[in-house]
């Protein structure tokens, strides 16, 4: 996977501020942003200012930002992949882009279009020991038939989706409740993970055991092992203890033709 280039970041920032109700003016790589009150509170790190304004009923004055996606020093705060501001915006996007309910737009000429309910869930799975690897899984589950697909997100973004039910759309009632659907998806993910290659975890155990032996050798013959021994043992466990972390990135209900 390739990280985002500066053009993509520019578009990302532009879209983000538009979607969160800020005013944006774009001059090539430069973005002039008038933050909304809500976004000022989210990304400007000035809780005391806002507490003061609210306590005194003062005139709120949300900040203006001048951002640039050019790496040449010049006007504006440089935003690139990995810059703290972008990470901060990512946190906001995670919070505000977690749950949706969308409808596929129907042909206006048709009298009635049946829309089938789907549950979409996107998972991030991290394999962790002394190093990490992450995989993104995008599931879709047909809540009528129980049919499940992978890489669902890429098919969703091809579609014309709107947040309100089209006038001529008819949403079929689901047979599988969304909560049950989530359980099915979870079970499917568990199966994928069990089937996966876990050489990494076995290798971590080998490294762990080897280092434990070295440690034991150092304290060989010491009956009352000092606290240092336990601390070091704990450190080994934290370093090499293999773990799989699953988090849901986002998901929602989709009524599709």
């Amino acid at each position: 996977m390739i990280a985002m280039n500066s053009q993509q970041i520019n578009q990302f920032l532009h879209d983000f501020f538009i979607e969160t109700g800020c005013d944006v003016e774009r001059q090539e790589e430069l973005l002039h942003v008038q933050l909304s009150i809500e976004m000022d509170k989210k990304i400007m790190n000035r809780p005391f200012y806002w507490r003061y304004i609210e306590a005194t009923n003062g005139e709120p004055n949300p900040a203006q930002l001048k951002l640039t996606t050019s790496l040449q020093r010049g006007q504006g705060e440089i935003i690139h992949f990995g810059s703290p501001r972008l990470q901060q915006i990512y946190r906001v996007v995670e919070e505000f882009g977690a749950y949706v309910q969308m409808y596929e737009e129907a042909d206006v000429t048709a009298s009635q279009v049946l829309l089938t309910p789907w549950l979409a869930v996107n998972y991030k799975v991290a394999y962790c020991c002394d190093c990490t690897k992450e995989v993104l899984y995008s599931f879709g589950l047909n809540l009528m038939t129980g049919y499940m697909v992978l890489d669902f997100h890429s098919s969703l973004i091809q579609k014309n989706l709107i947040p309100t039910k089209p006038a001529n759309g008819f949403c079929v009632q689901h047979i599988i409740a969304p909560q049950r659907g989530l359980e099915r998806i979870q079970a499917a993910l568990n199966e994928i993970i069990v089937e996966d290659d876990h050489t990494w975890a076995n290798e971590a155990i080998v490294k762990w055991q080897r280092e434990q032996r070295i440690l034991d050798y150092f304290y060989d013959g010491v009956d009352d092992k000092p606290e240092m021994y336990e601390i070091e043992k704990q450190a080994l466990q934290e370093r090499y203890g293999a773990k799989i972390k699953m988090t849901i990135v986002n998901g929602g209900l989709f009524y599709l033709k």
Partner: peptide
């Protein structure tokens, strides 16, 4: 429910 654009951006 939340915003579809932000949902896509999150992904």
């Amino acid at each position: 429910w939340q915003n579809w654009s932000l949902y896509k951006m999150n992904y």
